[in-house]
Design a protein around this nucleic acid. Structure first.
Length: 435
RNA sequence: GCCCCGGUAGUGUAGUGGCCUAUCAUCCGAGCCUGUCGAGCUCGGGACUCGGAUUCAAAUUCCGGCCGGGGCGCCA
């Protein structure tokens, strides 16, 4: 054989009928009927059938019926029109090569009639990902990320890559992963927050990063990962947070829209996606508290929304016809130190929520170094630990703001996936460090 | 970090002191079968998370470890 593959299963057309073609992939199933045997061969596009008759090709027949499921093979054969085969054609093998033999039994069935637990699937993620419905999640993920690049570049954002190994924790407070950096102590970045802010002092004005977030919090839920990804955006010369919210809602809309265009994948997942209306509803924190209290929540002003409250609000907003909505003007005391205060007790901050789940969190930032130091102290942190960050504010820092937008959370809500671990290839959670 | 629940063949499960030489399906192996497509049929294979305790007797009760699931807090 000159090549292992010159057609994918679903790319075969009527023009190929009667011709020699070469296909390759994984043996999904073998059905040996005695004098005739079928192989269901799977590649990234779908499956096709290889049909072998014992009397015509006894040698190939013998090899075919002996192969184990999920082995990798390449087959050259006659592409024959057939009403009995699902794709309308089948391959009559002339040459047959086993590229890799799968051991038996499989740790996880690809097309078995029993479900497997998520833990088993994650332990054998490479097999789990052979399922088209699992692949569909990541194909949609690719499409979403492509839309992030498309949209933000169309708005003249510059893509950046900031360090993941950093000297101080990004936002203080929450747990960070410690590591040894030669003779020094370092941390894994909780987010690119401090660096994307420093970049606002450069004149790049608009930056974004598809960033890794590392969080050492010992949570054990279906909504949390210790290593996750996000779209981080920061932009300068803004008058207020509304300018950032406009970018965010357009970004979210574009991501949602792009996902809705993944017809094949959505069909595999049996999902339908309807587009939200722009602009998204803005609700002030004060009004959120009122709404929640009216519905029986005991939340007091000044508290952050708990999980139950977030879900309740999601329901309330849904009833009012809003899937996506912003919660704005949070009390300054429940926001991180870099958040721009407003009036006495509020802040120029916002969260983007969808159906009771927080997708993104952002704000206008403080650009005055003295105010920033004051806020750092007020949050029980030491300005000395933030010296290299603060330096960026001393030699000309324009007003700026931005947000972080969790990609896995977004996918989860988009596709109604109940466990966030399904939305990332190799999840890192409280106990999982492999694969 | 706190609380609740669980761990039985490769994968999923049934079994809550003796009916267990542990159920069923899937899977794996052998055989039959010329159109399968959740193929069918026959035969075979394979498991009680680990350590300790209670008991005449433990998959089953108790204690501890390990592993897993869920919730809360925190967050994205």
């Amino acid at each position: 054989m000159e090549t292992y593959r010159n057609r994918y299963s679903l790319d075969v057309t009527e023009d190929d009928y009667g011709k020699l073609i070469t296909v390759a992939g994984w043996v999904e199933d073998i059905r040996n009927i005695g004098s005739i045997a079928f192989i269901i061969l799977r590649d990234r596009k779908g499956t096709l059938q290889v049909t072998a008759l014992k009397k015509n090709e006894p040698e190939i027949f013998k090899k075919i019926v002996a192969i184990s499921r999920e082995s990798v093979i390449s087959v050259q054969g006659l592409c024959k029109k057939s009403d009995k085969a699902r794709n309308g054609y089948e391959i009559i093998p002339q040459e047959f090569e086993v590229l890799s033999t799968a051991e038996t039994p499989l740790p996880l069935g690809v097309v078995d009639k029993v479900e497997s637990e998520l833990d088993t699937r994650l332990d054998n993620r490479f097999i789990d990902l052979r399922k088209q419905e699992i692949q569909a999640i990541f194909k949609i993920r690719t499409a979403i990320i492509a839309s992030v690049h498309d949209y933000l570049r169309s708005e003249n954002f510059v893509e950046v890559h900031t360090p993941n190994i950093i000297a101080t924790s990004s936002e203080g407070g929450t747990d960070v992963f410690k590591l040894k950096y030669f003779e020094k102590e370092a941390f894994l970045a909780q987010s690119p927050q401090l660096y994307k802010q420093i970049l606002m002092a450069t004149g790049l004005d608009k930056v974004y990063e598809i960033a890794w977030y590392f969080r050492a919090e010992e949570h054990n839920t279906r909504r949390h990962l210790n290593e996750s990804t996000a779209v981080d955006v920061e932009m300068a010369f803004i008058k207020n947070e509304e300018e950032i919210m406009k970018i965010l809602e357009n970004l979210a809309y574009n991501m949602w829209k792009k996902a809705s265009e993944c017809k094949e994948e959505l069909e595999i997942l049996c999902k339908e996606i309807s587009l939200p209306n722009l602009p998204f509803k803005r609700v002030k924190y004060d009004d959120v508290i009122k709404k929640l209290n009216d519905e029986g929540s005991k939340i007091a002003w000044g508290e952050d929304l708990g999980n139950e409250d977030e879900r309740l609000l999601g329901k309330i907003m849904e009833d009012e016809g809003h899937t996506f909505y912003f919660i704005t003007k949070y009390p300054i005391e429940i926001k991180p130190f870099y958040t721009m205060p407003e009036e006495e007790k509020y802040s120029r901050s916002f969260d983007l929520e969808c159906g009771g789940i927080e997708f993104a969190s952002g704000s206008q930032r403080i650009h005055n170094v003295e105010l920033l130091k004051k806020r750092i102290k007020a949050c029980d942190l030491n300005p000395k630990d933030f010296e290299s960050y603060l330096k960026g504010f001393r030699y000309g820092m324009p007003p700026h703001g931005g947000f972080g937008f969790g990609i896995e959370r977004f996918l989860m809500e988009l596709l109604n996936i109940t466990n966030i671990r399904e939305c990332i290839l190799f999840p890192r959670d409280r106990t999982r460090l492999t694969p």
